[in-house]
């Protein structure tokens, strides 16, 4: 457990002000060959182009896919997750979105993540560590439409919960797809209730759809239990 946290406890400047990004973060970013181009684009802050419609926050698209055969660890998760790009306006968002395949067309065990710039789509990020997520499991065939409705509501600030939203994820799995939205404070029930109600409205889901809220600490614990890290972390 300690190793896992050390590896991820990062450099984020500590405050949750999305507008500032975190300069240390990009300096420390891995310098693999494949990431060089990405890095140079990340260092300058994205801004809306002239005449474009600015968004309340800048966001970053990420993509991850589980490498078959390799043992899953958080470290390899961080290596597997790839930044696609950041945007600051509606037009810039569509530029990225229209150049990516839709989640419903993904194959294998893969995820799209859309997070506010500066927040990594990881439980351990400073903005996420006290947080949680609403999870909606979807039968196959609904993912693209639901994902679009979810992220359009997030970008358009339809959730009305102040700074609470961190990002959204769509996970393509074998027999089902899962969409989720992450917020900062799992214990803030007024916020989580409002997010749930907004989700119901914007996703236009059947009333019998099951929505589940899960705190990231529970997710971490489940992950550790599953990977047999209980003893390693001192027999908790």
């Amino acid at each position: 457990m300690n190793n896992k946290f050390d590896a991820l406890k990062d450099d984020d400047s500590g405050d949750h002000d999305q507008d500032q990004g975190s300069p240390k973060d990009s300096e420390k970013e891995k310098t693999d060959e494949e990431d060089k181009e990405q890095n140079s684009s990340k260092k300058k802050m994205v801004v809306p182009g002239a005449g474009e419609h600015p968004l309340q926050y800048n966001y970053t698209f990420w993509y991850s896919r589980r490498t078959p055969g390799r043992p899953a660890s958080t470290q390899s998760y961080e290596q597997n997750i790839k930044q696609i790009g950041s945007f600051a306006s509606v037009e810039q968002f569509w530029r990225f979105y229209s150049h990516m395949i839709r989640p419903g067309d993904l194959t294998g065990h893969s995820d799209f993540h859309l997070f506010k710039e500066g927040i990594k789509p990881m439980w351990e990020d400073d903005a996420n560590k006290m947080g949680g997520k609403w999870i909606i499991r979807l039968r196959k065939g609904l993912a693209s439409r639901c994902w679009e409705n979810l992220i359009l509501a997030m970008l358009g600030e339809q959730f009305m919960v102040g700074e609470e939203i961190c990002g959204a994820v769509v996970s393509v799995r074998f027999q089902e797809d899962i969409i989720s939205i992450w917020n900062k404070t799992a214990s803030d029930q007024a916020t989580t209730a409002r997010i749930r109600d907004t989700l119901r409205r914007v996703l236009n889901l059947p009333p019998n759809t099951i929505m589940e809220y899960k705190t990231h600490t529970d997710s971490i614990k489940a992950w550790e239990d599953f990977h047999g890290l209980v003893n390693a972390s001192g027999g908790r």
């Binding site: 509606v90 810039q92 569509w94 530029r95």
Partner: peptide, 23 residues
Amino acid sequence: YTRDFLIELANCPEAMKKPEFLP
């Protein structure tokens, strides 16, 4: 922004350009 407004913007030429940095 409402969903409809955002979707309207998806159809403008600016939204179809290829992003400058795309891996």
